[in-house]
Each structure stands twice: as C-alpha cells, then as structure tokens.
Design a protein around this nucleic acid. Structure first.
Lengths: 143, 143
DNA sequence: ATGAGTGCAAATAGTTTGCAAGCTG
DNA sequence: CAGCTTGCAAACTATTTGCACTCAT
C-alpha cells in the first residue's frame, strides 16, 4: 500500500477514532475516492479498484459506514444514483457539485443555503434536518 | 370522470398545447397528483389509482412526459427515488420540499438559490443548468 | 388511418440481506 | 478470541425496454 494521500490518512484517523476497523479494502476504497476527489457511485469505486480487491457489496457497506462516520458526503445524481465524495482540498467541509450531465465531470460548488433551510425547517417543527442538492448542466466541452 | 380540479384542467390544457394526447389514464394520474399536492413516486401514484385503471409502466412513461411538458416538477427522495409534483396552490412555479424521513409528510419550501447557481454555473461555462434540492428531517409528530 | 399511447412480460440498474468464514483490535 | 468485516448468492426495489395492440386525433 504505497504512499497514502493526506486525505486518506485523515479519513483513516477519523474512522479509527469512531471505532471502525481499518481493513485493506477500506483503505483501497478511500484511495479511489481520494484520487477522484469528486463524487463517485459504489459502482464507480468498484471499477476503480484492482479486480478482486474487494467485493461490490463491501463497497456499499463501507460507503454507508463512511457516511455515518462523517468522512464522506452523500449526494444524488439526476437519475437517483447515490454518490459519495471525500472532501476536496482544504477542510473538506460540506459542499455541493456542478456535474456535467454528459461526461460526468464535476466541480465543487461552495454556495449552500444550509442555514436558511435549517432555520425554516426548525420553524416548521422539524428536527434532524439534512439536505441534498445537486446541480447539473453541460460542461464547456460537452456544450 | 366527475369534477376536475383546476390544477388538472390547467395541466391538460398545457399537455394538449404541447401536442401530447389526452387519455383516461393521464387524466387519472393527474387527478391523483392534484389530490396529493405533494411529491409522489410512480409507485405511490399507482397505489392511488383504482386498481386496473392504468399500468405502472404507463405511469412511469406519463410522468416522464409530464416533466418534459413542464407540468410537473421532478424531485428525489433521500434514497434516490424520483418523485413528481404538480405545482401546489398559486402559480405552481419552481419550488422544493421539506419531507419527513419517517412518515413522508412534505411541506413546500420556497427558498431556492436557482439564480445564484445558474450564475455560478455559467461562470464555469456550463449550459442547460438544472438543479435538484430536497430537505429531510423528522416532522413534529415523528420527532 | 396513423402514429402516439398502453399493457404485459421480461430485462436492467442500484442496492440490500442472510449466512458462513476471515481478519482486526 | 470476540465480534466487526467480508464474500458470495440471492432477494428486492425502482425503472426501462420490446412488442403487439388500441385509441385519440
């Protein structure tokens, strides 16, 4: 397991802290996510792994754990497919994406109305508020 | 086909204008959507129809057409299920929803950053920009 | 009458579950 | 060594497609 990106190291530390176990497959999955630095579906992670490294089912289970542990962000594609993303750059905080409907290329979007939404939801008496937002379009090359 | 809500009538007019044909099943589906006035999945529409009125496949196809014709809004649930919504009240323009993760109850949310997103996307050279946003939480009764 | 629309059956995509065996802490 | 994790097979849910038939225009 050659060099390990900073992102992966951070993630592993966090996982360990949350009491999850560190396995070869988890490290591999994190590696793929880190290399992409953009949202990926379980299937895409699978494709990015050296064949036989890990079962697709394991990827689903790990991604779910990663999300619970708060080390990846969950998003949705236009067609409903769930995608997970290891925070890009800096702090990797909450963010969204501008995804090309055609080639899949995604860019980070930092505007977000999370607070306004939370306030509004609280106003309606809702608790445990979360939100999903995805922006789609055709990127310059695909336009 | 008893009385028909204003919403349904509007929708039918629009459909006709766009060159789509008006069938019993389409009217029925619109009727269900209008009664709910909140986002529904294809399955839920199906359940709301008198058995045998229309095939589930037809619902999928109709909803797709309705969206193309611009008479329903497309949304996504937390788990990726697509939901469609006939504009509530007033103009039925673009809007989002605050959905209870537990009981499914949904309320309309009018805040939206569509313009900011569009500007940002344009800035990145993207065209044909659309976005999906859904807010989830636990409603007062389910909290 | 003619092509959009429908029903039925079957195929897909994405995701979940059960269970026995393996590996981490 | 206890129990979290994994792999494999199989079940499931949401959605799509092919094809012959029907009905709105």
């Amino acid at each position: 397991m050659k060099v390990m990106s900073k992102l992966v190291e951070q993630a592993i530390t966090l996982l360990r802290k949350e009491g999850f176990r560190i396995t070869e497959q988890r490290k591999a999955i994190l590696g793929v996510l880190a290399k992409a630095e953009s949202p990926m579906s379980a299937d895409e992670c699978f494709a990015g792994l050296t064949k036989g490294k890990c079962d697709l089912v394991t990827i689903y289970r790990c991604l779910e754990q990663f999300e619970k542990a708060g080390i990846v962000e969950l998003g949705v594609r236009e067609n409903g497919t769930r995608v997970y993303c290891l925070g890009h750059g800096h702090e990797g905080g909450h963010h969204h994406h501008l995804t090309c409907r055609n080639c899949g290329h995604a860019e980070r979007v930092d505007i977000c109305m999370g607070n306004e939404l939370e306030d509004l939801a609280m106003g309606h008496g809702f608790t445990k508020v979360t939100h999903v937002m995805e922006v789609f379009g055709l990127c310059p090359s695909c336009s």
